[in-house]
Design a protein around this nucleic acid. Structure first.
Length: 437
DNA sequence: TCTGGGGTCCTAGGACCC
DNA sequence: TCTGGGGTCCTAGGACCC
């Protein structure tokens, strides 16, 4: 890549127009749909384990509550200010997300669901007025159908669409819709955008860039390409090209197959005992295997990671280790056996553990089982598959963990996570009805 | 007492092979 | 005195995202 500048060429061809639709304060908005009394009041939603604050209403932001703050440090303040606090309720948010995405799919066949609360849409180029009209229509439709407010940013690349979306959210005059179309507008906007607010520039890169006097998007796009490549890797280079209106990130309309499945949780309180760690690990394996089967995949490698609380003073311990299986599998018992073997190797007595996690790697589609010199007996895998299918079916119909493995513990679970402020599963609570008994 | 979880990608360095 | 070089695989670590 040469360092020749292609800084806003006046004859740049116009390709697709990208829209980024982002739900405003999504988790908070979901809670508000079912509790309208929360409108206009400060609301926060906590991470798993009630650890950090991960979503804030505008009113909560105004109170000076930051993203990612530890809940326990802020709890007295939140109480004093009368802030409404919710544990995260992913079944609810997932369901609301699906409704939003369904509404968006009506506007174009070019849709990339980027995250639980964000979606890229692709449109053919059109006059600015028409694009803005479509954006407003999207906003109204989603609000009407789901109750969720969204912002829409439009631009010639995904990275610029992200910036446009940010403008749509921040500038009240925009009414949550913003188009970055012509060169002048893009340039002016980049000059007002700090590098840390650019998609792909995280905290570390931002700090580095500031030390070099690169403070805004406009500063960044003016840097020599080789310099960017050397200091920010090829990914950073793509980001810079995108700021320069050259699309590098295309619309991924079909989701790529998963490459890994992680299941990992902090404990509600510290665990010293290997038996309890084993039970928590067994539970993670169960979850991970369920997700693996739901995706129609087999895992070839299992990884277990174990760690103590890195925020505590004194000696801490963290370790992880993989085991590759002889045959890829989606059977809970085989994955469980591998994971427990890894725990035996990793466990050190005398530590207070904070977290254990499992990762399934080298995932392959289950119908593409690689030809093996020593294939597992067909009858055996058939029986196992039937068993797993039955377990998954029962758990789907009668609720999570209706059928479970003894290895995950039958007594009270000292490792269970905290979740003290959870709202009802308004839209998916059927699996908790008393008739299940 | 209490600091999330689930992902992806890139790079560097070591081991090993020919 | 001289001590290759290129390819691949693996792992760890670092960076980013939501």
């Amino acid at each position: 890549m040469s360092s020749t500048q292609t800084f806003f060429p006046s004859n740049a061809p116009r390709g697709m127009v990208y829209a980024l639709v982002d739900c405003n304060n999504f988790y908070v908005s979901c809670e508000r749909v079912f509790a309208p009394r929360l409108q206009g009041r400060p609301v926060v939603v906590l991470s798993n384990n009630d650890g950090c604050i991960i979503a804030r209403s505008e009113e909560a932001k105004t109170l000076g509550i930051a993203m990612g703050e530890p809940f326990h440090k802020r709890e007295p303040f939140l109480r004093r200010e009368g802030v409404n606090v919710f544990s995260s309720n992913y079944p609810l948010y997932g369901d609301m997300s699906a409704r939003v995405m369904e509404a968006l799919s009506r506007f174009t066949p070019h849709q990339e669901i980027y995250s639980i609360d964000e979606c890229f849409l692709g449109f053919v180029p059109a006059p600015d007025a028409d694009l803005l009209c479509t954006a407003r229509h999207i906003r109204e439709t989603v609000r009407q159908w789901t109750g969720i407010p969204v912002s829409v940013g439009l631009a010639p690349t995904k990275t610029l669409a992200k910036i446009a979306n940010r403008c749509a959210k921040k500038d009240p005059a925009s009414k949550n819709v913003c188009l970055l179309g012509d060169t002048t507008t893009i340039k002016q906007t980049l000059a007002r955008t700090d590098v840390e607010d650019i998609w792909g520039i995280g905290r570390r890169y931002a700090r580095f860039l500031h030390t070099r006097g690169v403070d805004t998007g406009l500063d960044l796009v003016r840097m020599p390409r080789d310099w960017v490549r050397n200091h920010l890797t090829v990914v950073g280079l793509q980001t810079v090209l995108e700021l320069d209106r050259q699309p590098c990130f295309v619309l991924e309309t079909t989701p790529a197959p998963a490459k890994s499945i992680v299941c990992s949780r902090s404990f509600g309180r510290r665990i010293r005992d290997k038996q309890a760690l084993g039970e928590a690990l067994a539970r993670h394996i169960q979850r991970a295997a369920e997700r693996l089967r739901a995706k129609g995949l087999l895992a070839h490698t299992v990884r277990v990671a174990l760690e103590t609380n890195r925020f505590q003073p004194g000696p801490q311990y963290a370790a992880r280790r993989c085991q590759t299986l002889f045959h890829p599998t989606d059977a809970t018992p085989a994955l469980h056996k591998a994971a427990q073997g890894l725990l035996d190797i990793l466990y050190r007595s005398g530590f207070a553990y904070q977290k254990i996690g499992v990762t399934l790697l080298e995932l392959v589609p289950h119908n593409h089982r690689q030809a093996s010199l020593f294939p597992p007996a067909a009858a055996e895998t058939g029986r196992q598959r039937d068993l797993m299918r039955t377990v998954d079916h029962l758990n789907t119909v009668y609720g999570r963990d209706t059928v479970t493995w003894a290895a995950s513990g039958l007594g009270p679970q000292q490792w269970h996570m905290r979740q003290n402020h959870v709202s009802p599963r308004y839209t998916t609570a059927w699996d908790e009805l008393p008739c299940v008994g």
